[in-house]
Each structure stands twice: as C-alpha cells, then as structure tokens.
C-alpha cells in the first residue's frame, strides 16, 4: 500500500537525487574497478561509505524535520518529479 505522507522542497529533493545518482554510479563503478587500480579503488571504497552515510543522514534529518507518518515494515519513497514522500507498506 502506498500513502502520501508529505513533501520536501525542490532543493531537498535535488540533494537526495544527487546522492541517489552518486550511489548508483559508485555501485556500478565497483563492478569494473579492481584492487590493482589502487588509488581509484581506495577512493571508491571511501566514497561508498561516505555517500551511504550522507544518504541515510538525509532521510533521518528530513523525517525529523517533517515528522512523516511511519509504520512497522514500512518504507518511505520519494517521487523525484513531484518531491512527494510516500509511505509504502506491504500488502496483507
């Protein structure tokens, strides 16, 4: 089930969209980068950790700021076109 629970500003949306894109980019880069490319590999590993933290931090900060409704086993989703936040819960 999907329920609209809030909306973020376009600037806030841009922030998470960039992190989302970066995380995808890093994940796909990780598939082709090998440890023998030492400098880039180390940079990538560090970056993946940092980007993951920033990503989580965005959701924590926004959830606190907007006090979105939550649910057990539920997830929040963002729509990049509308900046809307949805609560998605498993169908029973």
């Amino acid at each position: 089930m999907k329920k609209l629970v809030g909306q973020v500003t376009p600037e806030e949306k841009n922030e998470i969209q960039t992190l989302f894109e970066r995380r995808n980019g890093l994940n796909e880069l990780a598939k082709i980068l090998t440890a023998d490319n030492t400098d880039l590999y180390e940079k990538l590993v560090k970056d993946m950790g940092e980007t993951g933290s920033k990503f989580q931090n965005w959701w924590d900060t926004m959830a606190k700021k907007y006090q979105w409704e939550s649910a057990k086993n539920g997830n929040w989703e963002i729509n990049f076109e509308t900046c809307e936040i949805f609560l998605v819960t498993p169908e029973n």
């Binding site: 960039t18 970066r22 980019g25 880069l29 082709i32 980068l33 880039l40 940079k43 990538l44």
Partner: peptide, 19 residues
C-alpha cells in the same frame, strides 16, 4: 561505457552524479 564511468570518477567530473 567502462571508460566513461572510470574517467568521470577519476576526474571528479560533475556528470558522475548525473549520467
């Protein structure tokens, strides 16, 4: 595509976050 991804990242090119 492998070269593009690697180079975007190596150069810290802003397109790495949006391609």
């Amino acid at each position: 595509c492998d070269y593009i991804k690697t180079e975007l990242y190596r150069r810290n090119h802003h397109w790495f976050n949006s391609y």
